[in-house]
Design a protein around this nucleic acid. Structure first.
Length: 265
DNA sequence: CCTTAGTCCTGCATGC
DNA sequence: TGCATGCAGGACTAAG
């Protein structure tokens, strides 16, 4: 499932579209564009793309008319420049480009969403970016609730970009039990977590993201970071630190992986 | 204000 | 083999 490192990888591969423009738009699944096909066409077609960037887990295209298109890949979405026969079946939206090959949005589970925004009101409810240790630390200290730490990390209003995989990996690195209530965790541990999050995300960006099933870059290839996961999806395997067996539990309805010895409450 | 449950979706793994 | 069931989950909405 695409989280910050996966979206960042995709965005880096899309930056060259800056200066180009969409000259056609075909919508094959209306919900992907919130049923707004006509509006999308009127706002986007033949408008120069000025910038491609990322905000949290959203891919953002800025246009010369001050409109921003956001694309959220959710679980199985991908953006690719050529369609295999198998992908064709799941193609939800296609963008014709004036200077480049067409861009296809392929999404098996149809959870992915595109939205239009005015430049000055983009994604107002998102928390800060988590790539700097100090920013993460301050964002976490600002949270005054008592939820389980795993839920806090998944809350995009507190901090953006962290999803199920990197939440588990960061909590392992910081030796924090995913079920620990936020207000019961020491400042020292929160500092360790603030250190772990940017490091883990940056390492994954360097590995082109984590491919467990569906995530692909625009070249339709997987990332490599799945080879470096220490707890996510490692249930039943030995902990790389203490050799205990990695366990799985549910926190906030999400599958959660941890070492019961390294991450005691 | 809070937390929890339900919703959207399809492919794949599992069990009988 | 075939069919039914359940699970995966990010963000949003509704209910309590």
């Amino acid at each position: 499932m695409p989280e910050l490192p996966e979206v960042e990888t995709v965005v880096r591969e899309l930056r060259h579209l800056s200066g180009d423009q969409f000259d056609s738009l075909k919508v094959h699944w209306f919900k992907t564009v919130g049923g707004e096909e006509k509006l999308f066409k009127s706002k986007l077609l033949n408008k120069p793309i000025t910038r491609v960037f990322r905000r949290g887990k959203y891919i953002c295209f800025s246009f010369a008319n001050k409109v921003i298109l956001t694309i959220h890949l959710r679980m199985t979405g991908k953006l690719i420049f050529s369609l295999s026969e198998k992908d064709q079946k799941h193609c939800r939206v296609e963008f014709g480009l004036k200077k480049n090959k067409a861009l296809y949005f392929v999404d098996i589970r149809k959870f992915g969403r595109m939205q239009l925004w005015e430049e000055d009101h983009l994604l107002p409810d998102l928390g800060p970016e988590p790539l700097e240790k100090d920013v993460v630390y301050n964002a976490l200290l600002e949270y005054k609730g008592k939820k389980e730490i795993k839920k806090v990390l998944l809350d995009q209003k507190i901090l953006v970009g962290v999803g199920n995989i990197y939440a588990d990996e960061a909590l392992f690195q910081a030796k924090i039990n995913p079920n620990s209530k936020f207000d019961r965790i020491s400042k020292k541990r929160i500092a360790a977590l603030s250190d772990a999050i940017p490091k883990i995300l940056r390492a994954s960006i360097n590995n082109m993201g984590t491919t467990l099933s569906d995530y692909r870059t625009t070249k339709n290839i997987g990332g490599e970071n799945q080879n470096y996961l220490k707890v996510y999806g490692q249930t039943g395997l030995p902990c790389v630190v203490c050799d205990s067996t990695i366990k799985r539990l549910i926190v906030g309805g999400r599958s959660t992986h941890y070492c019961p010895v390294c991450q005691k409450k």
